[in-house]
């Protein structure tokens, strides 16, 4: 039997993958949106306690981490420009810098959290229940959830970028086909933007 055959096209539609990524970013924003709603409700109910608790956070580390993420967003954006000029070496280098910056962010976060744990501040701690008001407990509960979930997104973003680096190194991503690299950049910017909101909410406003 003879089949009538036709060629399967290579279904590459950069526009579609970009729309897909944007839609996914919507869902991520709503995921954090739920947390921002909870934060605003409890901040409204416990303004004093939130003020007191925020004093305990290390504003210096917070600022350094903000700068780190802003720079990493710049480097991943530069990587997207570099691939369009087909400069593979530079692309890989810029992505590597992004990943290293992300790692630095996590190391800082580790020391920051570690210091809090050392002071007996962690979810479910007896020390907190005995010495803190309910508002302060809520503040630190939200602090750990929101920065923790954000750190998880940093890790996912790093994994995504490393995956794209491997593909770039193998030549699967090049100046004609770089939607995936662009998407990893979009995701990284999202992670960055969420931090831009977390930073003032927890560290700056009083």
């Amino acid at each position: 039997m003879e089949h009538t055959v036709h060629q399967t096209h290579d279904h590459y539609d950069p526009e579609a993958s970009k729309i897909g990524m944007w839609l996914f970013i919507f869902t991520e924003l709503l995921l954090f949106g739920g947390l921002f709603v909870i934060y605003s409700v409890y901040r409204f109910l416990n303004p004093e306690a939130f003020h007191l608790a925020a004093e305990e956070l290390n504003r210096a580390i917070g600022t350094i981490n903000t700068i780190i993420l802003l720079v990493s967003s710049a480097t991943i954006a530069m990587a997207t420009s570099a691939i369009q000029k087909n400069n593979k070496r530079q692309t890989l280098l810029l992505m590597l810098v992004t990943v290293l910056l992300a790692l630095t962010f996590l190391v800082n976060k580790y020391f920051e959290w570690g210091a809090k744990f050392g002071h007996g501040i962690f979810p479910g701690s007896e020390h907190m229940i005995q010495t803190m008001s309910k508002g302060e407990i809520l503040f630190f509960g939200l602090y750990f959830i929101m920065t923790g979930l954000h750190a998880l997104h940093i890790i996912i973003g790093m994994a995504f970028i490393i995956f794209v680096m491997v593909l770039t190194a193998r030549g699967k991503i090049h100046s004609e086909r770089f939607a995936l690299l662009e998407n990893s950049g979009l995701y990284w910017h999202l992670v960055d933007v969420i931090w831009i909101f977390l930073f003032p909410l927890f560290y700056l406003i009083h």
Binding site: N46, G124, L138, G141, I145
Partner: peptide, 14 residues
């Protein structure tokens, strides 16, 4: 798992 308090009235949650 941890008792973070956001929904637990005993810890100030709603």
């Amino acid at each position: 798992i941890f008792g973070i308090g956001v929904f637990d009235p005993a810890l100030g949650g709603d």
